[in-house]
Design a protein around this nucleic acid. Structure first.
Lengths: 178, 178
DNA sequence: TCCTTTAACGACCGATCGGTCCAGATATTG
DNA sequence: CAATATCTGGACCGATCGGTCGTTAAAGGA
């Protein structure tokens, strides 16, 4: 997974994968089929990790505002410094392959849908608890937050300071909560 | 430019470029050097187009709030339907190459910086005119808006409805203006 | 211990990659 | 019209791509 994450699909050659898996060509093909299947498997694992984290941060049994804070803070940390420059496998794959690969498109569309749904759910619970500012619609706000964090990952591929980003994330959430 | 835009750098092979430029291999290399140089030229043109548009929409002589509205609306339109699925050359390049190509990194970092500066400037002018909501910091809000629009381009690579996106963009700006 | 079965390995395959270069067409000039 | 300069096209190059397959080593059973 790490190799695809760091280099992207097309830029990852078989030798890279062999080095990473410590397998020989034959063994790798026996175990995973072809490069595309192996990539799909890596993508699935990356997405699983992400939704697991999402489910923890935005757990319905926890306070939704705290959850959203943790969600944003997690993204800010993950996009700072070297981690940030590594980028995000989902976004890189979306831009590189989603337009021409139905398997990939399906996975990524579903991931974004899940994330938006989780965030919207947390916002709805916050609204029910009277913690949202007046006139905030959970569905709209969810899309805004998801776009914001994904945009974060993009612009932090090329440096940019982490401090102001953290402030921006705080400022954004503060616009929504009471 | 269009070929790189649609397919990305690695996925674009020489034959694709020959078809697009209606040049032969020899002529193309005589005119542009190598594939990398040609790509840089295409990227520069794409970025020039974008900052030109930015300078029009956020022209200091025009009303800053109207400008920001136009800026957001432009991105929403450009990310809807088929246009959206084509994606954004800057983002795709950032994810694919920025980490390993200094020339590319420089260009993209500078583009994001320019965009954020233009947006921040418009927000500052809006603030000076008393049109910003209380407690809104132009620098933070600018980063939020830039991340939002770039995130938009990412998630709209995999469909997603344009209507709710438009509503989200409106809702976001409404959180900042008075 | 010897035979059978399974799994790992890397040499090898055709295709295609980005890049070079020379032959021939075209335009220009005397 | 002829000679020269310019440019175009595509055959060709080594390298590397993703993928296959025969060989060899290892493991299990009688």
């Amino acid at each position: 997974m790490g190799v695809f994450w760091s280099r992207g699909y097309h830029a990852t050659a078989l030798p890279d994968l062999l080095r990473a898996t410590k397998l020989s060509r034959g063994s790798l093909y026996a175990a995973f089929g072809d490069k595309h299947s192996l990539f799909l498997r890596a993508l699935d694992r990356y997405i699983d990790d992400a939704v697991t984290r999402l489910n923890i941060e935005l757990d319905p049994r926890k306070d939704p505002v705290d959850g959203l804070r943790a969600y944003l803070a997690g993204y800010v940390n993950r996009t700072s410094g070297a981690h940030g420059r590594r980028g995000c496998l989902v976004i890189a794959t979306a831009m590189e392959l989603a337009g021409r690969d139905a398997d990939v498109n399906r996975r990524i569309a579903s991931f974004f849908k899940v994330m938006e749904a989780r965030v919207a759910d947390a916002l709805s619970r916050a609204k029910a608890a009277g913690k949202l500012a007046d006139g905030v619609d959970p569905a709209n706000a969810a899309r805004i937050l998801v776009c914001f964090v994904e945009g974060l990952r993009v612009i932090s591929k090329t440096a940019s300071s982490g401090a102001i980003t953290h402030a921006a994330a705080d400022a954004l959430l503060d616009r929504f909560i009471r």
